[in-house]
């Protein structure tokens, strides 16, 4: 496209100077963003890598010093780290799969035309935009063992007779925080897939209907294939985001009880906030980063492939 533009440009203008001016303006416009992200992302990441090579515990400043890869060696032998990775997997898989299914169902429903659609849309999308700490507190209140809503409903309907401490029970804490995250994240899929549904040309469905395709056939052979790119992108974005997300668990359980909900990102926070072990926290976060980079490379491969098909 750029080439076309320069070819069509009137011959009277000197080619080089125009090109040079364009380059200069382009870089000039990028200076603010380079500064903004250089200071808040790029430099801190390099700094984190640097910190991970040091013994840097705030309450033991006398032991500060270069330790090479000792923190990484510690990481490999840290059982809690491996447990946190497994927990992260459960957290991501449990959250994203149900967010997807629920969000897809919601998108299909919201795509229909009915009275009051705009209002229902706004209502169902709200959980996504309210602050994470608000989500966490709302659900902590619902899960509260003595005067929480959930125990009350379950006992009134006769499902359970005794009160359950949802967030204090090692077997129930993870499902409980995952349900909270499903509530929060479902609207994201709903919003993305709804946009995808709206982009599918109506004629496709009409033609299929004329050919006698049933509603299920139309779903399988039109809706699903047409939505595939958005499904892949949305799911990948969501996986990364959920893996990195610490707020909900941090507020609701702080990774407890007994590390039952300790995912890698909250474990990193624990090392930084409670143990004040900045060196090891940096090591953990670099490990997180590496995992995400590997995932991103796979993700880019997949989306490239999709573009080729489309």
């Amino acid at each position: 496209m750029a080439r076309e533009a320069t070819l069509v440009a009137p011959a009277a203008r000197p080619l080089l100077s125009r090109r040079a001016r364009e380059l200069l303006t382009g870089y000039l416009y990028l200076i603010p963003v380079i500064l903004a992200l250089g200071c808040t992302v790029l430099f801190p990441i390099l700094k984190a890598m640097h910190m991970s090579l040091y013994n840097h515990v705030l309450i033991r400043p006398q032991e500060y010093g270069y330790v090479g890869l000792a923190n990484y060696a510690r990481l490999l032998h840290d059982e809690t780290f491996w447990l946190s990775l497994w927990n992260s997997f459960l957290w991501v898989f449990g959250s994203v799969s149900f967010q997807f299914l629920g969000g897809f169902a919601a998108a299909l429903l919201l795509h229909q035309s009915f009275r009051g659609r705009a209002l229902v849309r706004t209502i169902t999308l709200l959980p996504w935009i309210i602050p994470g700490v608000v989500v966490a507190l709302i659900w902590e209140f619902i899960y509260q063992p003595n005067y929480g809503l959930l125990n009350d409903i379950l006992s009134r309907t006769g499902v359970m007779t005794e009160r359950v401490a949802w967030l204090a029970n090692p077997g129930l804490a993870m499902p409980a925080v995952i349900v909270t995250n499903i509530w929060r994240g479902m609207p994201f899929f709903a919003i993305m897939l709804l946009a995808g549904l709206q982009a599918i040309p109506g004629e496709l469905y009409e033609a299929a209907r004329v050919d006698g395709a049933s509603v299920f056939q139309r779903f399988c052979f039109i809706t699903l294939p047409m939505l595939k790119p958005i499904i892949v992108v949305a799911t990948a974005t969501r996986i990364v985001w959920t893996f990195n997300y610490a707020d909900l668990i941090f507020v609701m359980t702080s990774g407890g009880p007994a590390n039952a909900t300790q995912i890698t990102s909250t474990y990193t926070l624990l090392q930084a906030y409670s143990n004040l072990d900045f060196g090891y926290a940096a090591t953990l976060s670099v490990a997180l980063l590496l995992i995400m980079l590997v995932f991103t490379v796979f993700y880019l491969r997949i989306t490239r492939g999709l573009e080729g098909v489309a």
């Binding site: 992302v41 974005t237 990364v240 990195n244 997180l288 995400m292």
Partner: peptide, 24 residues
């Protein structure tokens, strides 16, 4: 490269930035 950086930056965990930003 710029475009890729903006995409990749969205994938960075916030916890990665906490310790270095605090010291900064």
């Amino acid at each position: 490269t710029f475009l890729l950086v903006f995409l990749a930056t969205q994938m960075f965990p916030a916890v990665l930035l906490i310790a270095p930003l605090l010291s900064q």
